[in-house]
Design a protein around this nucleic acid. Sequence first.
DNA 1: ATCCCGAGGG
DNA 2: CCCTCTGGAT
Length: 218
Amino acid sequence: MKPKPKRVPTRKILDILAQMYPDAHCELEYRNPFELLIATILSAQSTDRQVNKVTAGLFAKFPTPDSFLTLTEAELAEHIRGLGLFRNKSKNILKTCEILVEKYGGEVPQDREKLEALPGVGRKTANVVLSNAFGIPALAVDTHVQRVANRLALADSENVLETERQLMKRVPRAEWSDTHHRIIWHGRRICSARSPKCHQCDLHPYCWYGKQVEPVKK
DNA sequence: ATCCCGAGGG
DNA sequence: CCCTCTGGAT
């Protein structure tokens, strides 16, 4: 008999994550699908904390696509200057608002293809909006999910789309949204890109990566 | 593969 | 100083 390749059951990992982060949720602040869409576009290569700092004032003055369209590209850029990639984001957001107004009556479409056709909106952003704003199951793979899922051997790929496929295959559909947020919280709080805190991680006994970083003490 | 691109942390 | 942050378009 060959020794079984022992792989940690996905169920085990998911249960521990649920136990570690029972209240995980989206940390971007928004009041409606439009605000979530804009906040998510802004979140590229930026921390949610910085995004919330910017959107607090922005959404108070400009709560709708129409109101954004009263701004020039340079004016909007000035409002979001605290974030990285602010020129690209300003341009994309205004074009997106134009399309929302002209094609969708100022509403955010609940449709992946229509969302991804908006400038500045790719698969990850579309997944965030579908899942959080509309309750449509989706599993957004961002930098945290990519890193953590691979460290935990929930996925094995350098490609985010492939990682998404592998996760969707292993995680029950009803748990996609919660799992997404739990993995992100884990990636922020413990399984950080640099110097992960394996010593205080409940998943350490089940983590191949953690054993490399910080071997179990005897 | 490269560009965009400021704030915050180590 | 260098690395990272809920990426997307070319």
